[in-house]
């Protein structure tokens, strides 16, 4: 398994830096361009969620990329986006719908739905020590 971790300051557009690394690593395992694009978008959303909602005192987002697979033929990319913020209850979140958002004052809150729609596997681990979004995509 190969692994790379970035520690990114919570500043505007840090998500773009994470998405560039995701692209480079996904390309290294010969993931198709359309799937790479989906990974990029999911990484952007996970980073933005951390930036906007974590209230982490260290103001950092940690993004770990793991290349998984048999021997010299890796076939899966796992990405963990972690913050050390206040955490949240994923089960307590209402699933956004376009009908609901069109009527609502607050139209945001789509991040997790987008991540779940674009990645093959998604797990949210959250508690008082922070949140980690673990997401994977096959090549």
């Amino acid at each position: 398994m190969r692994e790379v971790t970035l520690a990114l300051p919570m500043i505007p557009e840090m998500e773009i830096e994470a998405s560039k690394t995701a692209t480079a690593i996904a390309e290294s395992i010969r993931m198709s361009p359309d799937r790479i694009d989906e990974v990029r978008m999911a990484v952007v959303e996970a980073c933005i969620n951390a930036l906007e909602h974590s209230h982490a005192s260290d103001r950092e987002v940690y993004v770990t990329f793991q290349v998984l697979g048999e021997g010299g033929d890796p076939d899966k990319l796992r990405i963990m986006v972690r913050d050390t913020g206040i955490g949240f209850s994923p089960d307590g979140l209402e699933e956004p719908t376009i009908e609901g958002k069109l009527k609502a004052v607050r139209k945001r809150g789509w991040g997790l739905k987008i991540i779940r729609g674009l990645m093959d596997e998604v797990e949210i681990l959250s508690g008082a020590d922070g949140t980690t979004v673990v997401m994977s995509k096959m090549r």
Partner: peptide, 13 residues
């Protein structure tokens, strides 16, 4: 080539 959900929420407006 790239959008985020905050930008899209403005498109919803």
């Amino acid at each position: 080539k790239i959008v985020n959900s905050i930008g899209i929420s403005i498109l919803i407006e």
